[in-house]
């Protein structure tokens, strides 16, 4: 869903650019809190991971395919601020070095796929985490629902932008129906892949899943004897 040049008029493109700069500025401050001095190498490597993950195509139907956007996935894995930085850097590189997504639309793309998708995905995830029983096994389904919601919401925000600065005389209802309908389908693929990836990371390295940290806080090292009965639990 990379918006190309000429899709939205110049004022709208500039306005979304300003929104993107403000959002990335906030994220830069937030990411320092999430990752302290490790921020640069960690976010850089996770951005490379998001870039690789975006190469995964899944069939949507009618012979076309969507690819993972990774907003919700990155938010749950490394935290929302770092996720915004990851997605923004990936979109900048794709726009400037790969001609993927328009030059004047870089701000729009960062706003939609970086800010909106990450914020919605993370928001829904946190909400579900608070409502669902606080068990680590609930993290992956919550992440999947976050991803499921984030994609059509980003499409809806795009429809809003189109209403303000669209350049084609298509009825707004048609745009909304087509965009949200289509992206709900993509959202299902995104949700399945996001949930499965989070579950697999959770199984191998639960400490790396940022969104699961509050639920893992009271996990203690337990040393069991050969009979299977736990001995005294050492304090960390």
């Amino acid at each position: 869903m990379h918006v190309p040049d000429g899709f939205l008029d110049a004022p709208t493109s500039v306005a979304t650019g300003v929104v993107a700069v403000a959002g990335v500025g906030l994220a830069l401050r937030g990411a320092r809190r999430e990752l302290d001095d490790r921020a640069a190498p960690m976010v850089g490597l996770v951005a490379a991971f998001v870039f690789a993950a975006q190469m995964v195509n899944f069939p949507v139907g009618a012979g076309t395919s969507g690819h993972l956007m990774g907003g919700a996935l990155a938010a749950v894995l490394v935290g929302p601020w770092s996720a915004i930085l990851c997605l923004s850097v990936v979109l900048l590189v794709q726009g400037l070095l790969m001609a993927d997504g328009g030059i004047t639309a870089i701000g729009t793309n960062i706003t939609l796929l970086g800010l909106v998708a990450v914020a919605v995905g993370w928001g829904v995830f946190v909400l579900l985490r608070a409502v669902l029983p606080s068990r680590p096994s609930m993290v992956a389904p919550a992440a999947a629902v976050g991803a499921l919601v984030s994609v059509p919401v980003a499409a809806l925000v795009f429809t809003g932008l189109f209403a303000v600065g669209g350049t084609a005389p298509v009825a707004l209802g048609d745009v909304a129906t087509a965009m949200v309908g289509w992206h709900s389908l993509i959202g299902i693929g995104e949700a399945v892949v996001t949930g499965l990836v989070v579950a697999s990371v959770l199984a191998a390295r639960p400490d790396l899943v940022h969104g699961a940290r509050p639920l893992l806080a009271d996990a203690r090292l337990e040393i069991r004897t050969a009979s299977g009965r736990p001995t005294t639990t050492p304090q960390a």
Binding site: R38, A52, A53, L196, R205, L208
Partner: peptide, 28 residues
């Protein structure tokens, strides 16, 4: 590409994330 193998694909992506993250830690 087949949805039947999304499980395998996702476990692969999970492993790729862990490897990338750990590479980041080593680089740091």
């Amino acid at each position: 590409r087949s949805p039947r193998h999304w499980g395998t694909l996702a476990r692969g992506l999970g492993a790729l994330f862990i490897r990338s993250y750990e590479r980041g830690e080593r680089v740091h």
